[in-house]
């Protein structure tokens, strides 16, 4: 790993953050462009006042975000350690 780019750890951290932002904006994009997915499901659930579905969807998305952050954290640390 001696030849890995210097900015790689920071890039990986950025990927982790970007994934959470990307999942967050799923909702308007899926509703506007009429693609069936988590975002549209949440929108329909909000309009039908389907609270259990909404809470579960929020939990699922939070879980995905936490996983993405965790993976990027671990990857980042492994690079930093092998560099040192």
């Amino acid at each position: 790993m001696a030849r890995c780019p210097i900015a790689l750890p920071q890039m990986i951290a950025l990927v982790g953050v970007s994934i959470s932002i990307g999942i967050g904006v799923l909702l308007p994009i899926e509703v506007v462009s009429d693609v069936a997915g988590i975002g549209q499901l949440a929108w329909h659930a909000a309009q039908a006042r389907d609270l259990p579905l909404l809470v579960n969807l929020t939990m699922v998305v939070t879980f995905m975000t936490v996983c993405a952050t965790l993976i990027s954290d671990v990857a980042q640390r492994s690079f930093v350690r092998s560099d040192a």
Binding site: S20, I23, G24, V25, L27, A42, T58, V61, T65
Partner: peptide
């Protein structure tokens, strides 16, 4: 880490 848009709706 909470998706604010989902939470808001």
């Amino acid at each position: 880490s909470v998706p604010w848009l989902f939470l808001l709706i």
